[in-house]
Structures are given as C-alpha cells and as structure tokens.
Design a protein around this nucleic acid. Structure first.
Lengths: 252, 252
DNA sequence: ACTGTTTATCGTCAGGCAGACGACTATGAT
DNA sequence: ATCATAGTCGTCTGCCTGACGATAAACAGT
C-alpha cells in the first residue's frame, strides 16, 4: 500500500507499565491513582506519553524510573545491580479505549525485587502495590464477587496479559531471579515461583532442579538465616537465561 | 504523569505483516516491492496505515486480505476454513526508523498454508514468497556473504523476530497445523516442523508423539498417497491448542 | 510378476528426568 | 533440653524421549 505522508490519521502513543513484584508471598502490581478525568480517582497502571525522539524502550524505562526509582537491568551487563527486568508486552489500540482521543498504548512488563514503598512523584497515597488477584477480581478476570473499582481504561486486560506472560516465562527462563535481590537462597527463589503460580512446590525437588541446571545459579559462598531455620547458601543469578528442560508448572 | 490532550507528539501508526508459509520444504515469507521512496524498488514486508476507527487486529486482517486474499482464522470457530493464523508480534517505534516521519509499527505474525501465487493488488511482479534464510542473510542476520539488497526499514529485524516467534511457538502449541491444509498427514506435519526448524526429525518418534497427544489430531477417516509411498491417514487439527509436554526441538 | 524405492506405522529398549517422600542437618525459640 | 523451622541429600518409580529394528502398502521400472 502506498504511503501518503500527508494523509494518515494522527495517533497519540503511550507506554503503560505492568510492574510486578512479590510481597508477602503474593504477586503484586504497581497501581497509581488517577488525578484527572477520565477515570479520576480510579486506579490505573503507570504510564505516559512517548516523547519526540524517544525510543519505546527508553520511554518505558523513563516512566519506570519516575514511578519507582528503578533502573533497568541491562541484559548486556549481567546480574549485579538492583535493576529491574523490562520487556515489551503488547500493544493496545482499540478505538475508544481512551474516550478523549485515539491512543495506542505500548504496554511493557517490568519485574522488580521487593521494594520499600512506592513513590509516585513523592506522593505515596497515589501509588500502591496491590495483589494482582484483587485487582483482577474487581475487573471480572477472576471469579469476582464485588466488582468494586476496576482498573481504568483497558488496564485490567493489560495487567492480565502481563501476569500471564510472567507466569509462563518463568517456566522456561531464569526470569524469576528478577524478583529476587542480588543474593538470594533457593528457598526464596522457590517462594517466588509459588507466589507467581499460586501453587506449593516440593522444596526438595525444587532444590534439585535449580541447583542441577548448569549456569542457572552460582553460589556466592555466603550463607544466611534471614528465613529462619538452618542457614541457607546464597546464590546469584548465573549467566543462563534459558531453562532447558523447563521448570514444570503443576496443573492447578 | 498527567495526560494533556493538547500537548502530545503525533505519530503515524502502521501494521506490518510477517506472513510465513512452507513451500518446497523451506520456510518462506511474503515480501512486496516498494513502489515509492524511501527504499523504492527494495523488498519490504507488507503493511499499511491503521485507519481511523479501526482496531489494530482489524487493520492487520485487512492488510493480509489485501495482499494474499486470506481470511483470518477465527479462534472461536475452529479448524475448517483455509483461514490463516494471525497474532500480534511486537511494536517497533525507533525514531528514525522511517526517514519521513515518526512512525510506530505494530507488527503482526501470520501463518498460512501453501498458497498458489501471491497477488499484490493483482501485480504479481511486486510480491513474492522468499525463503527467510535468503532474506535474512542479505541483512546480516545469517552468516551472509553478499549483502545484496536487505529489506527496507527495520523489516529484517521484524522478520527475524517473527521467525523466532514461529519457531518457538510450534514447540508448545498446535500452531504448526496453521501451515497445513485443512486435511493433512502426519508426514506433512512433520515436514512443516522440519522446514521451520531446519532439522531432520525421526518419522517414527514424531508419529508416536503427535498421535499420542490427546486432542492434537483427529483422524478424518480418509487416506491419501499424494506424498508417494504407502497411503497415509488424513487428520484435521483437534481442539487442543497447547502441547503438553511440548515437542522437543533438537539442539542444532 | 518381481524387485527396488518410498513413505507410513508399530514395537522394543535404554537413559533421563520429575514426582513422591524418607532422612538428616543446622539454626532459633521456649 | 526440646521443639519448630528451613535447608540439603538420597532413593525409588513411572513416564517420556531418542535410537533404531521390523513390517506394511503404495508406485516405478524391468
């Protein structure tokens, strides 16, 4: 089809972020309260316009830093900082998804270790970590009872897609370590899987699997007792990014 | 970030298509010749602007129909027409990817059975099926020798991403049947895997795997000898979309 | 009609990996 | 000292896969 530079409909392009973390044994997402219409006062995913001259990934990283202070983990420089994992998720462009104008949103997925408190431009009351189960139940994506205040726009759909991406991706990649601090124990990593999948895993088989996969975990030599019980070895994420064979998710 | 409807940079939004099929035992992609600058005369992926009031998926389906005449396979109405599989791939928005203006392209991946001849608006010389190996070698994504005429824009990157998506997705889903006609034999399905992965698979183990996975294939009762040799049973794609355990891709 | 070629299909066997689960270890709490 | 908690090492069994032998049913050529 011929390009006609003078005759194309103009769009606004935004990035929206699904920022996931594991807190208190449950998968949580970052939600911000909208300060202006439409959907004023409702919770939404963080996001904003892509600026001129700005790459999509740059825009997502900038928004992530503005909302959480997190730096993005550079895949080239492996495994040391407290940076987050960031990847493009999908693009949502239904006409009418924003009542004001035609907006195409390029959603990104970010995985972060457990953080202190969210700061949305310094105003803590306008940002929070919410359990994804609660956020999605309110929007009819779970077996809901009281559809209290669903997320604004189509953000419930975006969140559901992001959670599904995270759930499947930790099966065959080492991405679960993005939820962990730089040094972590096998038990802490197992609790990440259990929270994301909402299942209970056998500690012995899990230990055998992750320590037996070459390049997945490298021991740092240290130990910790911060989980109670017998001291556990500390590990860092190894260079391997793909898990082959994958970690098997128990069916329900 | 506050939304300011009066102050956002305008973007053009396009859809680009990675249309894959298997022809003569090799994976091929649809390429169209550009009729106007920039990159006039070079090969590119089919695509076009998203229209006002048009969904992204609608735009992709419209472009696919314009270029190939294919209808999109409705996931709700399973397995009978010669429709193609269509899914969103990723979004590319580097500033400068189009020298004329700021264009964000939402790439889609389409998988189609082997088709007669391409028709790009009736002009056959401006559209062709090209082996993905050749297209990517020319762009430095394979071990190239003569970087003849790489694809226009960032389309080589988009094609590489689409091929990688297809390669990994046939591992754990029944998507390989989208490359087959409505009725097909186990051998034909195996040749799809072999073409997409560029490997040789053991016919006996492959047969055991696909016929032993419940819901993957349903026999139609008919047989065919169109491949020569002993008559083979004909199958249709079953309802199962996920392959568990997955088909294992031999490492190189 | 016979032989060779091609493709399809069934069977066998050994190795690897995952699930179930027993046993032991090393901390802190009472 | 005893208990509770969490980590780590083993064992066993069943399933799946890769390697590969064997048979079946078509066609081509002599």
């Amino acid at each position: 089809m011929p390009y006609d530079p003078s005759a194309f409909p103009p769009f606004a392009v935004t990035v929206d972020l699904v920022v996931l973390t594991v807190r208190r044994h449950s998968l949580c997402a970052l939600a911000v309260r909208r300060g202006e219409p439409p959907f004023r006062g409702r919770w939404a995913l963080p996001g904003g316009f892509v600026r001129e001259g700005e790459d999509l990934a740059q825009a997502a990283a900038r928004e992530l830093a503005e909302e959480t202070g997190l730096c993005v983990h550079d895949p080239a420089a492996p495994a040391q900082d407290n940076g987050a994992h960031l990847e493009q998720l999908a693009t949502y462009g239904d006409p009418g998804r924003d009542p004001r104008m035609r907006v195409v949103s390029v959603a990104h997925l970010a995985l972060a270790p457990d953080l202190p408190a969210p700061r949305a431009g310094g105003d803590a009351s306008n940002a929070r970590w919410a359990a994804v189960g609660e956020l999605l139940e309110q929007s009819g994506y779970g077996r809901a009872e009281e559809p209290a205040a669903p997320l604004a726009f189509d953000h419930a759909q975006i969140l559901a897609d992001g959670v599904e991406r995270a759930r499947s991706k930790i099966e065959y990649s080492s991405l679960a370590t993005a939820f962990c601090p730089p040094e972590f124990t096998v038990g802490e990593l197992r609790r990440v899987y259990e929270a994301v999948w909402s299942v209970a895993l056998d500690p012995r088989n899990f230990h055998r699997k992750v320590t037996g996969t070459p390049g997945f975990l490298v021991p740092t030599g240290g130990t910790t007792t911060r989980q109670g019980g017998r001291p556990a070895q500390l590990f860092r994420a190894g260079g391997a990014t793909l898990l082959n064979p994958p970690m098997l998710r128990p069916e329900v």
